[in-house]
């Protein structure tokens, strides 16, 4: 692992994330027959928010201000573990679990900040987030177990070290499908949550951040796009074999963009699920991952 590769990874990690919501938005606009916002819209949003002042609720305490900050910090450290086109330099055996729990920490901080506002809306969002994420967690761990059995490594670098379609195609499909469902749920996309909805009662992630504004909201927006990038990178590395060198970056970028577009396609072609149906789909993801483990154990 040379310094240059680490530097490239770091730069991509810092700069690329806000592009993904742009791609998703553009895909949805194309499907809807509209022109849609420009690809770089999220960058504009974040920069504008950074330049603003802040309004806080009287109810809130330091927890409200700490939430977005801690959440972004956890996501950044999680990002340092995730392999992009190059392997991650800080990887170690067992980092996959640290990754999962760092995402958990980010979620914990966001939920705490949401509850601090003392509003029913935010409480509702936090409650749903807690419920759905706790069901998604076993799917992730089982998928990791299956990948470990297939690849023999406990680090994200090894587990997502390039697709092995010839060895275990069916298992790979199951893991990929399960993880895609987890990606959609973790990143609050349709069919689990509708980021574009305007009715607070039906939101999950958006409603938790209703009272945030200014730089805090910028942290949140950047953090959620970073999370999307991390998940996308894992899925792309799982499903697509990456060639080394500059070509690797090209394939990786293409893959991540295609995945974002796929999310956009799902969002354009599906309605969001009823809240009571969400756990069922997540349990299905758990079953898929469990099945993949069984295949890997055989």
């Amino acid at each position: 692992m040379n310094v240059l590769a680490a530097f490239e990874n770091g730069a991509v990690l810092l700069l690329l994330p806000p592009l993904l919501p742009g791609i998703i938005g553009k895909t949805k606009a194309v499907f809807g027959g509209r022109k849609g916002p420009p690809f770089l819209q999220s960058y504009h949003d974040i920069l504008k928010l950074v330049g603003k002042g802040a309004v806080y609720s009287r109810t809130t305490t330091a927890m409200f201000r700490l939430g977005p900050v801690l959440s972004l910090a956890a996501l950044m450290v999680a990002g340092a573990l995730v392999p992009l086109a190059h392997d991650s330099p800080t990887s170690f055996p067992g980092d996959a679990l640290l990754f999962a729990y760092l995402l958990g920490l980010a979620r914990f901080a966001t939920m705490a900040a949401a509850l601090d506002a003392g509003s029913s809306f935010e409480g509702m969002g936090a409650s749903r987030e807690a419920a759905f994420s706790s069901l998604a967690e076993p799917a992730l761990v089982l998928a990791l177990a299956a990948l470990f059995r297939a690849t023999g490594g406990l680090s994200l670098n090894r587990m997502f070290g390039g697709a092995q379609w010839s060895v275990s195609g069916a298992g790979l499909v199951l893991i990929g499908g399960g993880l895609f469902l987890v990606l959609l749920s973790e990143n609050s996309r349709i069919p689990f949550d509708d980021p574009a909805t305007h009715l607070e009662l039906t939101m999950i992630h958006e409603v938790m951040t209703l009272d945030h504004g200014g730089p805090d909201l910028a942290f949140i927006l950047y953090g959620s796009s970073l999370k999307l990038l991390l998940w996308s990178s894992l899925l792309v590395r799982l499903l697509v074999p990456l060639p080394p060198g500059a070509l690797g970056w090209a394939v990786w970028t293409g893959g991540v963009a295609a995945l974002a577009a796929a999310v956009g396609v799902v969002e354009s072609s599906m309605a969001r699920l009823k809240m009571t149906r969400v756990p069922q789909v997540l349990v299905l993801a758990v079953c898929a991952a469990a099945f993949a483990v069984m295949l890997a154990l055989k």
């Binding site: 999962a100 729990y101 958990g104 979620r107 914990f108 939920m111 705490a112 509850l115 601090d116 409480g123 936090a126 409650s127 807690a130 419920a131 994420s133 706790s134 069901l135 998604a136 967690e137 076993p138 992730l140 761990v141 089982l142 177990a145 059995r149 758990v286 469990a290 483990v293 154990l297």
Partner: peptide
């Protein structure tokens, strides 16, 4: 390995439980 799934579920539920109580 399936015990690991139970551990993960318990972890997720614990997060829900303690954000509820502390919140």
């Amino acid at each position: 390995v399936f015990a690991a799934a139970a551990l993960a579920l318990a972890g997720g539920l614990a997060a829900a439980c303690f954000t509820m109580a502390c919140g």
